[in-house]
Amino acid sequence: MPRVGKNVWTGKNKPTFQFVSFAPVARGLDPGEPDGMTISRKDLGKLRRGDWAFVKRTEAVTGCEIFIPEEEYRGEDPREIGFWGVRKNIDAAKKGIEERLTSVNAEK
């Protein structure tokens, strides 16, 4: 990776770690599934307007939960947002977000 420096994790110095998924796990009869999409930091700011009013309305209309991490890290662009719901609801939420960003960008 650029700007990281020399790889010292070789031979006996290799770390032991495991990858962990933070996606919710289906329980019982819950037909929901996780999904995600990336969005530029600039576009995420457009969704943040009005105390996330558009995102909250999209959740209510589609029945899909939308997860946007509160913590931002320097240089993290694009950002990832998560979805939880049945496939058709996830697709509707993603489409709504894409249409919103397209219309906001067209206004400029």
Rank of each mutant, 00 (worst) to 15 (best):
K108A: 06
K108R: 11
F22C: 09
K46W: 09
R27S: 03
T16Q: 02
A92G: 05
I97H: 00
P69W: 02
Q18P: 00
G75E: 12
L29G: 09
G36F: 12
P24Y: 03
V104D: 10
N13D: 10
T58M: 07
E59F: 05
W52Y: 14
T62H: 13
F67W: 04
E99F: 07
R79V: 15
D77P: 08
I90M: 12
G85P: 09
N105H: 14
F67T: 10
Y73W: 12
A53F: 13
P34M: 04
R41V: 09
G32N: 15
F67Y: 10
G28S: 09
P69C: 05
E76W: 11
S21C: 10
E71N: 10
W84L: 05
V25G: 00
E65L: 00
I66F: 01
N105V: 07
G82P: 07
K95E: 12
I66A: 01
K95N: 14
Y73D: 01
V20G: 00
E65M: 02
D30E: 14
V104C: 08
G63S: 01
A23S: 10
Q18K: 07
I66T: 00
W84C: 02
A23I: 07
S21G: 06
E76V: 08
E59S: 01
T38G: 02
A26C: 02
G63V: 01
L101H: 04
G63A: 02
V104E: 08
I97E: 04
K12Q: 10
N13E: 13
F22V: 11
V86S: 06
K42G: 03
G45E: 04
V20L: 08
E99L: 14
A93L: 03
L47W: 03
E80H: 13
D77N: 15
G28D: 13
F83I: 05
E33R: 13
D35V: 04
K56M: 05
D51C: 03
V20M: 04
V86P: 06
E98I: 15
D43Q: 09
P34E: 05
R79L: 13
E70T: 06
Q18F: 03
G45N: 06
K95A: 15
V86E: 15
D77Q: 05
K46L: 15
W52E: 09
V86T: 15
N105T: 12
P24N: 01
R74G: 04
A106N: 12
A23Y: 15
E70S: 12
R87Y: 02
P31C: 14
E72H: 02
Y73N: 04
P15V: 05
Q18S: 08
F19L: 11
L101N: 06
V25D: 08
A26M: 01
V61M: 04
D35H: 07
R87Q: 15
V55M: 09
F83E: 00
E98M: 09
L101T: 11
D43N: 14
P78K: 05
R57T: 07
V61S: 04
V86Y: 06
